[in-house]
């Protein structure tokens, strides 16, 4: 709730890597020496259902893990856009997946909405699943909340030991997203 906190909402449908994107950010915060607190939706969520992750990043102690008004968002599908757009604080940056969210939906005033053609770019890269990391790259460039190297290190933590092949494609996806903005 503190003004110094970046409270990030990541939302999409199950399978798009919403929780993973949140975890990568959380790992990145460890390397960047920042405090972080992440809560993901749990339980009845299934592939195709709605998933969300809420991540607070701060240089100070983070108290409430409950975020009701995010001040940064990354929205990956239309149902999540409709569901959450009104909860986002005015003036916030909102990165949307313009491949699958109709642009007619995104005329919301008071928000800095940035479209990223993430799903199409990911398909072109050969793996639709990296759309989340492309968007993450764009979000990082747009907001500067963390150094890109911290996120690359975060992805190393998230993939390198167990899924090394996935590390390389995700790193490329991140750099592509970063350079889009």
């Amino acid at each position: 709730m503190s003004d110094k906190e970046t409270n990030i909402l990541i939302a999409g449908f199950g399978g798009q890597g919403v929780i993973l994107a949140g975890n990568v950010l959380a790992y990145a915060c460890i390397d960047a020496g920042k405090n972080v607190c992440a809560m993901a939706s749990y339980g009845a969520e299934v592939r195709g259902g709605t998933a969300k992750a809420l991540i607070s990043i701060s240089d100070e102690e983070i108290d409430s893990p409950i975020i009701t008004r995010p001040n940064l968002a990354m929205i990956m599908n239309a149902p999540s856009y409709i569901k959450y757009i009104d909860t986002i604080l005015p003036g916030s940056v909102v990165i949307i997946n313009s491949s699958i969210i109709e642009t007619s939906l995104t005329k919301k005033s008071g928000l800095d909405i940035v479209g990223v053609d993430a799903t199409n770019l990911a398909i072109r890269m050969g793996n639709i699943k990296v759309a989340n990391i492309i968007m993450l790259g764009a979000m990082l460039k747009k907001t500067g909340i963390l150094q890109p190297q911290a996120v690359v290190d975060g992805m190393k933590r998230a993939f390198y030991k167990t899924k090394r092949g996935l590390y390389y494609i995700n790193e490329s996806a991140f750099r592509m997203g970063f350079e889009l903005i």
């Binding site: 949140g22 975890n23 959380a26 915060c29 460890i30 405090n35 972080v36 607190c37 992440a38 809560m39 993901a40 749990y42 983070i62 893990p65 409950i66």
Partner: peptide, 8 residues
């Protein structure tokens, strides 16, 4: 909440 919370 505490069980699901991820933090360093």
């Amino acid at each position: 909440i505490i069980g699901q919370l991820v933090e360093p």
